[in-house]
C-alpha cells in the first residue's frame, strides 16, 4: 500500500456564487512529500486546501486521502454520513492562519481535547502524549496557560501540537505564518521544517518563498483557480516556465 498516494486530487472544481475559484485541479502528493502551494491572494490556494478536508465541498471532481474518497460514499455516490466524514477529516490535520485555538481551554486541554473526547484515548495516556508534543514544539512551559496569554508564534505551535495529537496522515497548513509578527515567523517555520524532515506528508499554502524553496519536494503555482506551474522547487525558483511566475517571483523577492 506504500505506493498509494497520501493525497490525490482529480478534476476538482469549485465555484462561489458563479465565480470559479478552482478549475479542474489535478494533484498527487506522495507519502512523506511536502508540497508548497503558491499564488497571489484570491488564486484559490486556500480553497484548494479546504476542499481536501471538505471544509468546502467541491462542485466536481474527487479527493482521496490514502486512497479513501473524501466526503463521498464510494458505494452509493452519496455524501458520507456525519460519522464517516468526521473520521475521514481526522485523517487530515489542518493548521489555520488564525490558529483557531479553543480559547476556553488551557493549552494542554486544547491538545488533549480531541484524543480524549473524540477518539476515546484514555486521559492519562492523552495527557502524557500532549505534554510530549508540547515539548516537541517548544511550548511545554505554557501547558497550564490559556491561549490568550500566548504570542502568535506560541499559539501556532500549540495549534500544530493539537493537530499532531490526532495522528493525521496528512498535514494541511493554511498560511500558517501570515498572521504572525515577522520575528515570530521563524519559530513556526522551524517546527514545520522539523515535521517535514520527520517524514510527515504536508500541503502548505504559504508566502514564505525561502521555506518553499528549502523544504518542499514539489511547488504548485495557482493562478485564477488553475495550476499553471507544478515542478520541483529548484526549477520553479530558477527556471520558471511562465511569465506569470517570473513576475510573481520578482515581486516576492
Amino acid at each position: 500500500m506504500t505506493d498509494t498516494p497520501a493525497v490525490s486530487i482529480h478534476n476538482l472544481s469549485k465555484s462561489f456564487g458563479g465565480i470559479e475559484v478552482l478549475r479542474d485541479i489535478n494533484l498527487t502528493v506522495a507519502r512523506g512529500e511536502v508540497v508548497s502551494i503558491l499564488g497571489s491572494s484570491g488564486s484559490g490556494k486556500s480553497t484548494l486546501l479546504r476542499c481536501v478536508n471538505w471544509l468546502e465541498q467541491p462542485d466536481r471532481g474527487e479527493v482521496r486521502i490514502g486512497g479513501a474518497r473524501m466526503g463521498v460514499d464510494e458505494a452509493t455516490g452519496r455524501p458520507l454520513s456525519a460519522r464517516a466524514l468526521a473520521a475521514m477529516r481526522a485523517r487530515t490535520g489542518m493548521v489555520f492562519q488564525n490558529f483557531n485555538l479553543w480559547p476556553h481551554l488551557t493549552v494542554l486541554q486544547n491538545v488533549m481535547e480531541v484524543p480524549v473526547h473524540v477518539q476515546g484515548v484514555a486521559r492519562a495516556r492523552a495527557r502524557e502524549r500532549a505534554l510530549a508534543l508540547l515539548a516537541k514544539v517548544g511550548v511545554a512551559d505554557k501547558a497550564e496557560q490559556y491561549p490568550h496569554t500566548l504570542s502568535g508564534g506560541q499559539k501556532q505551535r500549540v495549534a500544530i501540537a493539537r493537530v499532531l495529537a490526532i495522528e493525521p496522515q496528512v498535514l494541511l497548513f493554511d498560511e500558517p505564518t501570515s498572521a504572525l509578527d515577522p520575528e515570530r515567523v521563524g519559530e513556526v517555520l522551524a517546527v514545520m521544517r522539523e515535521l517535514a524532515e520527520g517524514g510527515y506528508t504536508m500541503m502548505v499554502v504559504t508566502h514564505e518563498m525561502d521555506f518553499a524553496r528549502a523544504v518542499s519536494d514539489q511547488v504548485v503555482f495557482l493562478e485564477q483557480g488553475k495550476i499553471i506551474e507544478q515542478c520541483a522547487p529548484e526549477k520553479f525558483f530558477t527556471r520558471p516556465e511562465t511569465e506569470r511566475v517570473r513576475r510573481f517571483l520578482e515581486l516576492e523577492g
Binding site: 473520521a87 489542518m94 489555520f96 483557531n100 473524540v118
Partner: peptide, 8 residues
C-alpha cells in the same frame, strides 16, 4: 471550524 477539521 477547527473542531470540524479535527474530526468533531
Amino acid at each position: 471550524e477547527a473542531a470540524y477539521a479535527h474530526g468533531y
